[in-house]
Nucleic acid binder design. Structure first.
Length: 648
DNA sequence: TCAATCCGTATC
DNA sequence: ATACGGATTGAC
C-alpha cells in the first residue's frame, strides 16, 4: 500500500465482493480504506482465508483489472526495498508508471479489435560477429542463443557499441526469451533502438509523456514486447520470460536513482538477473569498481578484447603535460596548446578529419584572473589558462598541468588571483583562434549534437555530449585532465577514465591514423590506464586500494543524514551488526542542486560500514530502526542511503 | 469519582 | 498520519 511510514511496510488483508473478485487479480491497483483514509495499493495475492485475527474491511474500489505489478516485479521490489532499507511503496513507484486512464482504455479497445499483438521478431540483421573480437565473447553469445544465462562484465572496443548490444539481444530473442537494455540517457536509447532495428524493440524513457509511457508499459506487461531499451527505470520493465539484462556504462551516475531508496540500476539488474535466473551483461568502454567486485568473486565473467582486436581497433593514446612536451614549435607556442596536442590536432585536420575536444562540464572549470587588473592568469611555461583544482590549492595550468606556485601578473605584478568561471563556449573561442580557418562546433548543455560529418572541424564537447563522427574522429584532445582528477571524490580516477574512454572510443583506430592526447601527467594511474587502454587494470587497482582502506564497494556502507538529535536517536535505536563501525558525525555535504556550496545548517552525516557479507543485516537493522522511529512518530527525520554515491 | 491528558499501539 | 484505549493526574 502507498503508505509513507516504514513500520506499515507490509501486506494487509482485505475482503473482495463478488464483482470485485472477478476483476482483482494479483498485480492490479486497488483503493482501500486504511485507518480512516483512502489509500492506493496493489493486490499482491488472492487467498481464501486470512491470518489476520481482527475484522477485515472490504476493498473500496478495484481501480483497474490491469495487473500492472507483475509477480516477478513485486518480489524484486520487496528485495530492493530490503536491500536499500526502503519501503515497498517507494520502490513500486519506480517500477510501475502512473496510471493513465485514457491510454488504458485505448489499449483495451485495440486489444478487442485486433488479437493480442504478435511478439516482436529477432532484430533483422544481428551482427553475430560483434563478439568475435573478445576472449569469451563467442561463448557468451552461444550460451544466450542456447537458452542459458551467462553473466559477464565486458570492456567494449571503440566502434559501434549499440551493434554489440544488439547482437546479445538477438541471440537471447532467438532462444525465445525477453531482453531488457538499460542505458544512461535518451541519446543512447535512440542509438540502441536503431541498432536493434525498427519494430524490434520498445523504448522506455522518462521524456515520453505519461500517456505514451503507460501505453508502452502496458504493451510490455501484456507480453507483446520481447525487447525493451530504456533509461534507468527500464530495469523494472516487466518483460515476460526474461533471458538477459544489459546495462551499458554502469559507472554513469545517471543510473543511480535520485529518489528513495536511491538504488542503482546496475545493482537492481544484478538482483533481478539473480531472481529471474537471467543472463546479465555489464558492458562499457570502462570497467566500474562495482563490476570488479563481481568478476573477482566469479559471479561475473570478465570479457575483454583479444590482443589482435586491440591492435586493430584501438587508437594511439598519449599523455601530454610532461616537461618535455613544452612547445618548441613557435606556431604551437602561439597557439598556447601543448605541442603534442596541437600537432596531433593539426595532423588530423590536414587529413580531412574532425577533431574532438573534450572539456569538463560547462561552468565547472574555474579559471583564474589577476586580482589587480583582471587579465586572465596564464601559465608561465605554455601560456595556457590557470585553474585551481581545489579550494586553497596551488593554481595549475589547464593545458600542461604545470603548477604555478609563484604566479606574478605580467601586466601589473600582482600576486593574487580571483576565480572566473569559463565553460566549453570560451574554450571553443580560444581554440578557434589557435586553428584559424577551421570550423569550431560545440556540443553540451542543452545544445547537444548527435553527429558530425567527416570533414575538418574542431568539435568541443562536454563529457556525455560528444557527437558521433561518421567514420570516427581523426583525433581527440582531452583537456583539463588535472581538473577531473583533482576532484575530492573517491571515484575521481575511475570517473575521469570513464569520461576519457567515452571520447577516445569515438576516434578511428591507430592504423587509420587515430590519435588521442590526454592533457594530464602521464605517471598518474588513471592516465596510464587510458594510454594502455586497460580499464580492468585501473578498476582492479582501485578495488585493492578500497579494500585496504575499507571503502565501498569493498565494504557496504550506509550514509545517515539528519539533525544531531535525529542521528543520535537512530543510532541508539538501531540494532546493527556487532562488526559495524560508525564514522562521524561530520557536517553534511550540501545536497546536490542547492545553491550555496557550504553545508546545510545543523545537518550532520554519519557513515556506517560493515563487511559486504553483513550488508543485509545492516540494511535490516536500519530499516527496523526507521520503523520504530516512524511508529513513535519521531520528528527529526533522518535520510538513510545505502551504497551512497558520495562517500566523503 | 470523573474528566482531561498523556503515551503507546494498531491501522486489514 | 490518526484514532483509540488504557494509564495517569488533578480537582471536586
Amino acid at each position: 500500500m502507498d503508505l509513507p511510514l516504514a513500520h506499515l511496510d507490509r501486506p494487509f488483508d482485505y475482503l473482495l465482493t463478488e464483482e470485485q473478485a472477478a476483476l482483482a487479480s494479483p498485480g492490479c491497483r486497488v483503493r482501500v480504506r486504511f485507518s480512516g483514509q483512502l489509500v492506493s495499493g496493489y493486490v499482491l495475492a488472492r487467498a481464501e482465508a486470512s491470518e489476520h485475527g481482527g475484522r477485515l474491511a472490504y476493498v473500496e474500489r478495484v481501480v483497474s483489472a490491469e495487473p500492472v505489478l507483475a509477480p516477478e516485479i513485486a518480489t524484486l521490489a520487496r528485495a530492493v526495498a530490503d536491500r536499500w532499507a526502503g519501503t515497498f511503496a517507494d520502490v513500486a513507484r519506480l517500477a510501475v508508471p502512473p496510471r493513465h486512464g485514457a491510454a488504458e482504455a485505448a489499449m483495451l479497445r485495440a486489444a478487442g479489435a485486433a488479437e493480442t499483438p504478435v511478439p516482436t521478431a529477432a532484430p533483422a540483421t544481428p551482427d553475430t560477429g560483434a563478439f568475435d573480437d573478445y576472449d569469451g565473447g563467442p561463448g557468451f553469445i552461444r550460451a544466450l542463443a542456447d537458452g542459458e544465462s551467462p553473466r559477464a562484465a565486458m570492456t567494449v572496443l571503440p566502434g559501434e557499441w549499440p551493434a554489440t548490444i544488439a547482437a546479445a539481444a538477438a541471440a537471447t530473442v532467438a532462444s525465445e526469451r525477453g531482453v531488457v537494455v538499460v542505458v544512461p540517457d535518451h541519446r543512447d536509447v535512440a542509438r540502441v533502438e536503431r541498432a536493434l532495428g525498427a519494430g524490434n524493440a520498445v523504448a522506455l524513457t522518462a521524456d515520453l509523456g505519461p500517456a505514451e509511457r503507460y501505453r508502452r508499459f502496458l504493451a510490455i506487461r501484456r507480453g507483446a514486447v520481447r525487447c525493451v531499451v530504456g533509461t534507468r527505470a527500464a530495469v523494472w520493465a516487466p518483460v515476460a520470460d526474461l533471458g538477459l539484462i544489459v546495462v551499458w556504462d554502469d559507472g554513469d551516475d545517471l543510473l543511480a536513482e535520485p529518489r528513495a531508496p536511491y538504488c542503482h540500476a546496475r545493482d537492481v539488474a544484478v538482483l533481478r538477473a539473480h531472481h529471474a535466473s537471467a543472463g546479465l551483461l555489464l558492458a562499457g568502454f570502462g570497467r566500474s569498481v562495482e563490476a570488479t567486485v563481481l568478476t573477482d568473486s566469479g559471479w561475473l565473467q570478465s570479457v575483454e578484447p583479444t590482443t589482435a582486436a586491440r591492435a586493430r581497433r584501438l587508437p594511439a593514446v598519449r599523455a601530454s603535460g610532461d616537461d618535455d612536451d613544452l612547445a618548441r614549435d613557435p606556431a604551437a607556442r602561439a597557439a598556447r596548446l601543448p605541442s603534442l596536442a596541437w600537432q596531433t590536432a593539426r595532423a588530423a585536420l590536414a587529413d580531412g578529419a574532425p577533431v574532438l575536444v573534450q572539456v569538463p562540464r560547462r561552468g565547472y572549470v574555474v579559471s583564474l584572473s589577476c586580482a589587480g587588473c583582471r587579465a586572465p592568469a596564464r601559465c608561465g611555461r605554455c601560456a595556457g589558462p590557470l585553474t585551481r583544482p581545489a579550494a586553497g590549492a596551488i593554481p595549475i595550468c589547464r593545458w600542461c598541468g604545470h603548477p604555478a606556485a609563484d604566479w606574478i601578473c605580467p601586466h601589473c605584478a600582482a600576486t593574487a588571483t580571483r576565480a572566473t568561471v569559463v565553460g566549453a563556449a570560451r574554450t571553443a573561442e580560444e581554440l578557434g583562434r589557435a586553428f584559424p580557418g577551421v570550423a569550431v562546433r560545440t556540443s553540451g548543455g542543452d545544445a547537444v549534437l548527435a553527429d558530425v560529418p567527416q570533414k575538418p572541424a574542431l568539435v568541443v564537447a562536454t563529457p556525455g555530449a560528444e557527437p558521433v563522427a561518421a567514420g570516427g574522429y581523426g583525433a581527440a584532445l582531452l583537456l583539463d585532465g588535472w581538473v577531473l582528477l583533482a576532484r575530492p571524490d573517491l571515484r575521481a580516477a575511475e570517473e575521469a577514465l570513464r569520461r576519457w574512454l567515452a571520447a577516445a572510443a569515438l576516434v578511428r583506430p591507430a592504423s587509420d591514423g587515430g590519435r588521442v592526447v590526454v592533457v594530464a601527467p602521464g605517471e598518474l594511474r588513471a592516465v596510464q590506464a587510458l594510454v594502455r587502454w586497460r580499464p580492468e587494470w585501473l578498476a582492479a587497482r582501485e578495488l585493492e586500494e578500497r579494500t585496504a582502506l575499507r571503502l565501498p564497494p569493498a565494504v557496504r556502507m550506509a550514509a545517515l543524514t539528519g539533525s544531531p538529535a535525529g542521528l543520535a536517536d537512530l543510532i541508539a535505536t538501531a540494532q546493527l551488526p556487532d562488526i559495524a563501525e560508525t564514522l562521524g558525525p561530520v557536517p553534511a555535504p550540501a545536497p546536490p542542486g542547492s545553491s550555496s556550496a557550504g553545508s546545510s545548517p545543523d545537518q550532520e552525516r554519519m557513515l556506517v560500514r560493515v563487511p559486504r557479507r553483513d550488508g543485509a543485516a545492516l540494511a535490516a537493522g536500519l530499516k527496523a530502526a526507521l520503523a520504530v522511529r516512524s511508529a513513535r512518530k519521531a520528528d527529526e527525520p533522518v535520510k538513510v542511503e545505502l551504497d551512497p554515491a558520495v562517500v566523503l
